[in-house]
């Protein structure tokens, strides 16, 4: 359903993404793993046009798009079909939990308030926060904020949701709750791209894994094959280095 060919991006002349290709099937969860600075965030931001790619073609729902040449209108149109969950949540701090979820529905999609609130409450229920509907972000824990952010993403019924390290800004005891919500979405068949350092989560939930290093997609393969014994030496050392960190 979403395919990218030849994505390139540089910042101030330094190439950050070099010829990245990837494809996501409907209903799949693509985990993006790799060492820090490898370009995972940049890839995700380019995929939702928060950064402008230097080169690359995107094929979304059968429509072919030249990524650097997308107009503002085309981008807005594309974003109606996608959602983005940020590492640091980025909830609207002047809006309550429910308003965060309904804002885009009412303002951007011109949905009636009553309909938007109905949908918003459904989305909050899905992340287990219906009772905090009137809380402001500053009154919520990090884990709760991230779950509201996920509700906001889900409420627009996107075709694909992009997650950029959704749990790495959270205290350890709050991570589980957020990962559970994402796993439940996966089980409901939501198509997702999840940048994460949670290897066990990737192993358990994802269908495919994209390994990014130095701005290149080293492999993009089925999860079982990625974690298999006979995979590339580089990937095995990467996974071992994470295990060592976990042991500490």
């Amino acid at each position: 359903m979403l395919e990218i060919v030849g994505l390139r991006k540089s910042f101030d002349g330094a190439p950050i993404l070099r010829e990245v290709d990837l494809s996501i099937r409907q209903g799949d969860v693509l985990a993006v793993l790799g060492p820090s600075g490898g370009g995972k965030t940049t890839l995700l931001r380019c995929m939702n046009y928060l950064e402008r790619a230097d080169a690359g073609t995107m094929i979304f729902q059968g429509r072919k798009m030249d990524m650097p040449a997308m107009t503002r209108r085309e981008i807005a149109d594309y974003r109606r079909h996608t959602a983005f969950v940020f590492q640091n949540f980025n909830l609207f701090s002047n809006k309550t939990a429910l308003q965060n979820v309904t804002e885009g529905l009412i303002v951007a999609r011109k949905m009636a308030r009553s309909e938007a609130e109905k949908r918003g409450m459904e989305a909050l229920e899905r992340v287990g926060l219906a009772d905090r509907r009137d809380a402001y972000p500053s009154q919520l824990s990090g884990g709760q904020q991230q779950r509201v952010a996920i509700a906001r993403a889900v409420a627009g019924s996107p075709d694909v949701i992009f997650f950029d390290e959704p749990t790495s800004a959270l205290d350890p005891e709050l991570i589980g709750g957020v990962l559970d919500v994402i796993q439940a979405l996966a089980e409901d068949g939501m198509t997702m791209v999840v940048v994460t350092h949670e290897v066990n989560f990737a192993r358990r939930v994802s269908d495919r894994v994209l390994f990014m290093e130095n701005g290149a997609a080293l492999v993009c393969q089925d999860t079982a094959a990625f974690f298999g014994e006979q995979n590339l030496e580089r990937i095995q050392t990467f996974l071992r280095s994470l295990e060592r960190k976990d042991d500490k």
Partner: peptide, 21 residues
């Protein structure tokens, strides 16, 4: 900056995000 980006990601326009967020 994230407030603006979050607004864009839920489909709002520059003017809408400025005025409401």
């Amino acid at each position: 900056r994230g407030q603006m980006e979050a607004g864009y990601c839920v489909g709002m326009s520059y003017v809408q995000i400025m005025a409401r967020i």
